[in-house]
């Protein structure tokens, strides 16, 4: 399993990306992450919720109570315009970083 310190700085962008795709609730985000990485990276719930509540505070995402099947209530998170802008900025940053590391490490 990958060292979580390295990925930590990018978790915000990862979560924003998942919420941009569609509105999601907390556990869905966590399971989505482990599913897509084939369990190579598993986010701790504690970490996830602290990031989500911070994003909420910064108004990058909004939450609302939605209904899942069988009428169970779920708190869904929805991206805001500000959040989208922030995500694209972060993504650009990541692309640049990847470019740089590629040149330096692969050469």
């Amino acid at each position: 399993m990958i060292n979580s310190d390295i990925i930590r700085g990018h978790l915000e962008s990862v979560i924003l990306k998942l919420i941009i795709e569609q509105d999601r609730y907390g556990y869905e985000i966590a399971s989505c992450i482990s599913e897509r990485t084939e369990a190579k990276f598993i986010i701790k719930e504690a970490t996830l919720y602290s990031i989500v509540s911070r994003l909420d505070k910064k108004e990058l995402i909004e939450s609302y109570i939605g209904e899942k099947t069988h009428g169970k209530k779920r708190r869904y998170y929805k991206i805001t315009t500000l959040g989208k802008a922030y995500y694209y900025e972060k993504k650009q940053e990541w692309l640049e970083l990847r470019e740089i590391l590629n040149t330096l490490l692969e050469a």
Partner: peptide, 16 residues
């Protein structure tokens, strides 16, 4: 399972 996977309060506050 939920309790096990939660981690601890330090994980929650580490970032903050």
């Amino acid at each position: 399972k939920t309790v096990l996977e939660f981690g601890n309060a330090e994980d929650y506050f580490e970032l903050i």
